[in-house]
Structure formats: structure tokens, C-alpha cells
Design a binder for these strands. Structure first.
Lengths: 328, 328
DNA sequence: TTGTAGGCGTTATCAA
DNA sequence: TTGATAACGCCTACAA
């Protein structure tokens, strides 16, 4: 492996001059620049990035936290972040927290050991108090999930509004017995706010909210199928359900059809996200501008890294909208 | 930020001894070890990984190449690889090639600049001749996609068999006019072998293969919908189609039902992968053990990194099986 | 416009 | 069992 020294020797110049050429510094004579470039090519030289990192105290690498990459919401988020990062010459380290506090803490060490310049969290497992100390080692940006205590930039969606317009939509279609599914992450603002929006819409319309119409642990298609079987067995059945995700909605729709129910006549269903799945299953859903928040979060992250100032709280909240299909 | 020097000073010992403790070397007196550990805790010390990388010439990081992470096949592959890597203390850098040669070449530089210890490729955009030179900088393992020229370990699925059993299944159900969808990557062995399996089954059964029943550029749900509209407009229509993926199959099924066709009576459809989607849409499909190949590939990668020997060709081929549902 | 030299934080070699 | 010292490869004052 050729080093900067080898290049310098071959070009008949000093390491300094070679370094200047590599880093595009001013005050290098055109002729020497050519000499260096030629030597670099001849030796098939590339700067060793471990050495650069050590010297510059920067890695040009960002860690992205997701619960699981197979969740389509998060894979889309990661795709848009990777695009934005690559464009600015940054790499992404993928960290799957698997919904576990311990796994999240494990990955936080990446920042402390200087393996990455910053962290983008799309979900939060631990209390903010346990994450906060890591701010001493580099910037953190929240994307999607949020927290009131966190004094960092947050790019997220207006989940109160999401819950509200989704529920309102059902109400406007004449449904009155509206059930609610939730992922039930105790500390999740996303889930909490969405529920606030739902309750607000229900209250405004003077509709009742029964505890038996609250279905929790709803994440996946199979959770949706399980929830349908609960609904099927209930005496006091809802006539429609607000779900937290297209997967859950799809699972309910699938199980309902299988049981001979008509959607939306016997049960209306509204999803969340507008995944390809929603179109396939003809689900009305609440669309989230996933690519946009991913890109904005990554751009913000890089801005934070470059402007070495201490971080400040800054909320960017994006709107949501209903996509109507045949499930409502 | 505390350095090893600070720890040494506080413990009243040399850097060497501290380093020995960090790296669990023998010949450190228990008492000094305690002293060092205490000093490390007091200073909240962690070794700087950039310095370790430079010194050890290793990064404990692996780059994983996928075309796009939003493709569920690849996100599942990445999930299983990340699990396997994390278990052995390795990180993953996510590289989306976006089906582009140039992007793939761009990311190959990660290996040359020593940002990663090795590469796992799940798809191949460039000719092997253009990738081969990078073997000089570290190990490469192929997972899913393969190539005959590549003298590296390959973990893949028996795609000939996949095409064969999928087609055979249709034949056994009485279909005779069997269409074929393909992603049409010229150089892809996955696509090529699968087609070989299809042709083999057709030939054995003495069934005709018409060029107009070959549908290319089939990757996504919307490609499937496009393909259905082609089928609909054809005079000589197939009675069934073998698709390269559940997404394409789902798209065809969706468009067919919308147009009032019955599946499988008017058109039978077989998918590939056994994604959650396949269950939702009731698609018969060819199941691939994605998690297994992901894990095996990552374990092989780490083995290659540790055993600094030159790489050798080694094929690991896993079987596939039919999952029957109502689309055939 | 170019070069000298020191240091980023570790670890490995050698000597004690 | 411990320590001094020299790399690893690069960048950047500072001096010329």
C-alpha cells in the first residue's frame, strides 16, 4: 500500500505538498500539482482514511438508528437518508435497536468511541436522560420520533393532526363506532400524539370511546389478523378502525375478507403511511412525507456536524394528508 | 476527551500497561489491572477507535451492497446480516448501488481507502473484471447474486431449481400457456438461471414458449400492473405467469382483479420470495431462505477477514420450496 | 510557493 | 511484569 511518503518521493516533493494537492489547498504551483497527480496515479495511491480520521478527528460517517430495517416505514426513511448522505460524501452505519433499550445503548457507544460523527434516531427506546450524556461526544438529530426534553433538532410529522384527520375522515363517512389500534410504546410521542388526535376528533363529534375498542401491540400484518379475530368475537363491535400502520390495516382487511366480512360495509379500515401495500390492498390511509423528513434530517445532521456549535432545540413539523381508497 | 495517556498518568503507570489492560493481554498484575480499570472509569475513558484502526489496520466494519434497501428482499437480507455482524462486534455500512455501475464503483473505494475490512455484495452491477482488482484490498463475499468468474465465497440459492419448480408447479396444476416475467438484468446469474429452470420445465412438458410471453423490466408492483395491461391487450394470451418476485405478482394480481379477471381461473400467478405481501395477496410463491443466506454470508465474511489467507472460490447453494396459495 | 517537524491516540517491539 | 520508544499515515503550524 502506497503512502503519502511514497508519492512524495516519486514526485520529488515533500509530504506537505502532496497533502496540499490531496486537500485542494491554494498555493501549489500547477506544475507540481501535475507531478503529484501523476505520482499518485502511478502508485495507485489513495489516502488512508483511518489516518485521516485520526488526524482530523472526524469520520464522515453517521449512525442511523431504526428499530428494524424490514419495517417498510423505516427502510424508506433509511433509503432517503442514505441518498442524502451519499450526496454529501457521508457514509451510514445501520443500527437496528430491535426495540431494545440495551441494543440502543450499545450503539450509542459508536459516538463515544468516535466511530461516527453524529447520530440520527428514528425511534427512542431509552429515557432521554440516558441518551443525553452522549451529546457531549457529538450531535444527535431526531427524525420521526420526538421528545420534549431533547434539546436537539427534531424533524417530525404532526401526529396529533394525523390521528385527528384520520378519525375525522371516518366520522365524515358516517362511521360512529370507531376503534383504535396502537403500537403501544409507552414513551412514544408518535403513538401518544396520534391518540390525542383521535380522542380530540371523537370528542368534537360527541362519539363514545370504549376501552374494548382500544387494541394494542399492533405493529405487523399478523397483529392485524389477531386484532380482527378479537373484533369478531366482541359483542360490542366497532364499525370501523383507525390503525397505526398500513401493515396492521392490511392484516385486519385480509382477515375480515377471509371471514366473509365486507370492507368497508361491515368494517371500515384506515391505514397509516401510504406504503405500496396500501395501494395494493385498496386501503384509505394517512400519507406521511417519509422521503422528505429523511432528507431534511440528514441535511440537518450534516449541518450540525460542520457548524461545531452546541446543539439547539429546533422543531420542524411536516403536515400529513388523507389518501382515500375503498376501505372507508 | 481522556486519552490513554491521561489514564496512565492517573493510574501512575505507563501507556503500555494501560493498553495491555484494554486488550486483555497476559502479564499484568491483578493489582495494576484494578488501578487501571479504576482510572478508566474515573475519567470515563474509551479507546479512540480511529487511532485503533490506524494502528491495527482493521476497522471491524463491513460494507453491504444492495440495489435499494426498500426492496423487501434486500431489507430482509440486510436485517439478517446486521444481526449476525452485531453479534460478532462488527458494524455495517449500508451501500445502495441504485442499480448503477457508477454508484457501485464509488462504493468500492471504501475498501481501497480502508474504511471497511470487507464487502458483501448482494447484487452485481459491473463486470467482474472491474471488481476483481479490489480483492487486493480485502475480502469480498457474494450473497444471492453470483458469477462464475469470481474466485470468492458465494452463498446463493439454486435459481435454476427455483425457476424449474415454480414452472413445474404451474404445469402440474394444468396450465399450458405459461408466461414469464424477468427483471432482465443482462448479466445477472440469478435471473439467467431462473429462466433456464423455466425453459427446462417447459421443454420437459413439451410446452411452447412464445417471445410475446416474455415480459421484461419487471421489478415492482407497478411493473406488475403494467405487465397485466400488456397481457390484457394480447391476442395470444398466457393462462398463467411465472414472476420473478412477489411484488410483480401482486401487481399483476391487483390489476387483473380490478379488470374483472378471476385469479387463478382467468390467469394464474406465481410469485417469488414469500414476502409478507404474498400471504396478504394469497399468492402461491417460491420461498427463499433469506435469513439463512444473509447469516451465512456474514459469518463467512468475518471468517475471511480473520483468516488473512487469500480468498478461494466456494459455493454454498441452498434449496427453495413452493408455498401454495390460491393464486394457482 | 515549498519544506520541516510535531502530534493525532494506539499498539508492538524490545529491553530492563 | 513493566516501561521507553517507534511506528501506523496523515495534516498543519511555522519557518524559509
Amino acid at each position: 500500500m502506497a503512502t503519502i511518503q511514497d508519492v512524495a518521493k516519486l514526485a520529488g516533493l515533500s509530504r506537505t505538498t502532496v497533502s496540499r494537492v490531496i486537500n485542494d489547498h491554494p498555493y501549489v504551483a500547477e506544475e507540481k500539482k501535475r507531478l503529484v497527480t501523476k505520482a499518485m496515479e502511478e502508485l495507485n495511491y489513495v489516502p488512508n482514511s483511518s489516518a485521516q480520521r485520526l488526524r482530523k478527528q472526524a469520520t464522515e460517517t453517521i449512525a442511523v438508528y431504526v428499530p428494524r430495517i424490514t419495517n417498510p416505514f423505516f427502510s424508506q426513511l433509511v433509503e432517503s437518508m442514505e441518498n442524502a448522505a451519499a450526496q454529501k460524501g457521508y457514509q451510514l452505519i445501520l443500527c437496528q435497536t430491535r426495540y431494545k433499550k440495551k441494543q440502543e445503548l450499545f450503539y450509542l457507544e459508536l459516538l463515544r468511541t468516535k466511530q461516527v460523527d453524529g447520530l440520527v434516531l428514528t425511534s427512542i427506546e431509552n429515557n432521554w436522560d440516558d441518551i443525553k450524556p452522549y451529546l457531549a461526544y457529538g450531535p444527535i438529530v431526531l427524525c420521526n420520533e420526538y421528545s420534549d426534553e431533547a434539546e436537539v433538532p427534531v424533524i417530525h410529522l404532526d401526529q396529533v393532526e394525523g390521528g385527528y384527520i384520520g378519525t375525522k375522515h371516518l366520522i365524515s363517512q358516517g362511521y360512529k363506532r370507531i376503534g383504535y389500534c396502537s403500537g403501544n410504546h409507552k414513551s412514544s410521542r408518535v403513538a401518544g400524539d396520534r391518540r390525542i388526535g383521535y380522542l380530540k376528533a371523537m370528542k368534537e363529534a360527541g362519539l363514545p370511546v370504549y376501552p374494548e375498542w382500544y387494541y394494542d401491540s399492533a405493529y405487523s400484518v399478523s397483529d392485524g389478523m389477531r386484532i380482527f379475530s378479537i373484533i369478531e368475537s366482541q359483542d360490542n363491535k366497532p364499525d370501523s378502525v383507525f390503525t397505526g400502520s398500513d401493515e396492521v390495516a392490511a392484516g385486519i382487511a385480509k382477515a375480515a375478507k377471509k371471514a366473509g366480512w365486507r370492507v368497508p360495509d361491515d368494517l371500515a379500515i384506515i391505514g397509516f403511511d401510504n406504503q405500496p401495500l396500501a395501494e395494493l390492498m385498496d386501503l384509505t390511509t394517512v400519507e406521511q412525507p417519509i422521503d422528505t423528513i429523511g432528507r431534511l434530517a440528514m441535511e440537518k445532521m450534516i449541518e450540525e456536524i460542520l457548524s461545531k456549535r452546541p446543539q439547539r432545540r429546533k422543531r420542524t413539523e411536516l403536515p400529513l394528508k388523507i389518501i382515500q381508497r375503498s376501505s372507508t
